[in-house]
Every structure is written in structure tokens, then in C-alpha cells.
């Protein structure tokens, strides 16, 4: 049943996968990263953010990592998340799906330009 949550992949979940592509981040940093990579168009609220994280964790597309208390001096202990190999594959598949879509759009002259 939960599988349906990520099929089709919601754009919030896709953005989270992308945000984790280069480094491990905690929730707030993911939110900021997504805001940045969408030019401020998408600001994930806590419910959407953690709802998506939960689904991605369940499907093992991301994993939680414990950095320990030493980094954050105890008071602000945060959970960091890391992209798994299957998460990376999923993001790649989604990107390719979008690229296909883009090619169709160009073929139908909705969008101009030669390459994706």
C-alpha cells in the first residue's frame, strides 16, 4: 500500500532525492536546498517534507545516518539523510522520464531548443 505513495514519484520526493545527490543533509537543510534548486518556488513544509522522507525511508531510497552528538554539541541533534543506490537509480529514472517528456514537448513545438 505505501508503495503507491511514490508511484508516480511526487515532485517533492524527487526534489528531496536531488537535494541529497551531493551531500548528506538534515531536514531543514533539505528544505533550504530544495528552495534553492527550485529558485524559491518550492518551500517544503514540515508535513510534506517529513511525509516524503518517511515514504522514501520505507522504500529504502534514502537512509538515516547518525552523525553522533560530537558534531552538534548535543543540543541540536539532528537526523541526517543519505541517498541510497536505489534512490539514486530512482532519481535517475525520474529524470530520464522528464527528459522524454521534454523531448515530446519540443517535438510538438511547445518548447524550443535543440537539446535537453
Amino acid at each position: 500500500m505505501p508503495k503507491r505513495k511514490l508511484d508516480p514519484l511526487p515532485s517533492a520526493a524527487f526534489q528531496i532525492l536531488l537535494s541529497l545527490a551531493e551531500e548528506d543533509l538534515h531536514g531543514y537543510a533539505i528544505m533550504r536546498q530544495v528552495e534553492e534548486q527550485t529558485g524559491g518556488r518550492m518551500r517544503l513544509g514540515p508535513g510534506t517534507l517529513y511525509g516524503s522522507i518517511q515514504s522514501l525511508l520505507e522504500e529504502k531510497f534514502i537512509e538515516e545516518i547518525d552523525l553522533g552528538d560530537d558534531i552538534k554539541t548535543g543540543q541540536e541533534r539532528r537526523r541526517y539523510y543519505r541517498l541510497t543506490a536505489s534512490g539514486r537509480r530512482l532519481a535517475r529514472a525520474e529524470a530520464e522520464r522528464l527528459a522524454d517528456l521534454l523531448r515530446v514537448a519540443r517535438a510538438k513545438k511547445i518548447l524550443r531548443g535543440d537539446y535537453v
Binding site: 531536514g27 531543514y28 528544505m31 514540515p46 508535513g47 517534507l49 517529513y50 511525509g51 522522507i53 518517511q54 541540536e76 539532528r78 537526523r79
Partner: peptide, 12 residues
Amino acid sequence: FRKVYAEEALQL
């Protein structure tokens, strides 16, 4: 959901 993420959501 709350059990796992309430604290995180508050932190955010």
C-alpha cells in the same frame, strides 16, 4: 507520523 517526526518538524 507524530511519534517519529514531531520533534523534527518542530525543529524545522
